[in-house]
Design a protein around this nucleic acid. Structure first.
Length: 193
DNA sequence: CCTCGGATCCTT
DNA sequence: AGGATCCGAGGT
C-alpha cells in the first residue's frame, strides 16, 4: 500500500516548469487500472515546456487540444503524436500559465515482468510508457491522484546532484538548443544522449 | 477547405 | 533513411 505522505500533492507542481522537471526525476509514476492491475515506474527522464518556448504546444496560446496545459498544476496533459502514440505530461505552475513536464522514460519496478532482460526498455520513450500504462486522452486534464488511477510519488532516496544530467531536448526543431531535458545518469531507458 | 508536419517508434 | 497514421493548426 502507498503511504499517504509519499503521494505528490497537486500544489507541489505549482512552480516554474524548469524547477519541477528536474525534481520529478527520481520520483515515481503509478498507474492503477480499473481491473486492479497496478504498475509503478521510476521517472528517469523529463523535459520542460515553458510558456515562452517556441517548441511548446502552449506557445501560440490556448486551444482545445492544449487546454489542460493552461489548467491547474498537478493535472495530466495527454496528446496524440504522429497519429499513433500518446505522450504524458505533468502540468505545472498556476492556472492560466501554459506549461508542462513531458515524462520521457520510466524504469519499471522489478515485479512488473519476469525477465530482467526485458525489464529495461519496456517504458523507454514517451510513447512506449503511455502504451504500457494505458494512458490516453481520456486522462487529459485529470488531477494526478489515486482517484484518477494515475499519480506521482516522492523520491524514496535523495538524489545526488551528480546523478542528474541536464542537456538538450529530443525530437524538436524549434528552440532545440535550450537545455531543458534532465535524466538519471546511467539509466538504460534514457533517449539518445 | 486544404496542406503540412509533428514533444514517436520500428523496420529497412 | 523511411513509413505508419491521424489530427491540430494555420493559411486561403
Amino acid at each position: 500500500m502507498t503511504p499517504d505522505d509519499s503521494i505528490i500533492q497537486p500544489h507541489w507542481c505549482d512552480r516554474a516548469v524548469t524547477e519541477v522537471a528536474p525534481d520529478l526525476v527520481g520520483c515515481y509514476l503509478v498507474r492503477h487500472l480499473p481491473g486492479g492491475t497496478r504498475m509503478r515506474g521510476l521517472i528517469v527522464e523529463t523535459e520542460a515546456y515553458s510558456p515562452e518556448d517556441p517548441a511548446s504546444h502552449a506557445y501560440r496560446g490556448k486551444t482545445r487540444r492544449n487546454a489542460s496545459m493552461f489548467g491547474p498544476a498537478g493535472c495530466g496533459y495527454v496528446y496524440l503524436i504522429y497519429g499513433r502514440y500518446h505522450c504524458f505530461n505533468v502540468v505545472t505552475a498556476a492556472a492560466g500559465i501554459g506549461s508542462a513536464v513531458l515524462i520521457r522514460a520510466l524504469a519499471m519496478d522489478m515485479s512488473m515482468d519476469q525477465s530482467v532482460k526485458q525489464r529495461h526498455r519496456i517504458a523507454a520513450g514517451p510513447g512506449k510508457l503511455c502504451q504500457l500504462l494505458q494512458i490516453d486522452r481520456s486522462l487529459d486534464g485529470h488531477p494526478l491522484t489515486p482517484r484518477s488511477g494515475l499519480w506521482l510519488e516522492h523520491r524514496q532516496m535523495p538524489l545526488a546532484a551528480s546523478g542528474l544530467v541536464q542537456t538538450t531536448r529530443v525530437g524538436i526543431r524549434k528552440a532545440a538548443e535550450k537545455p531543458w531535458r534532465w535524466y538519471l545518469k546511467d539509466s538504460p531507458e534514457v533517449s539518445k544522449k
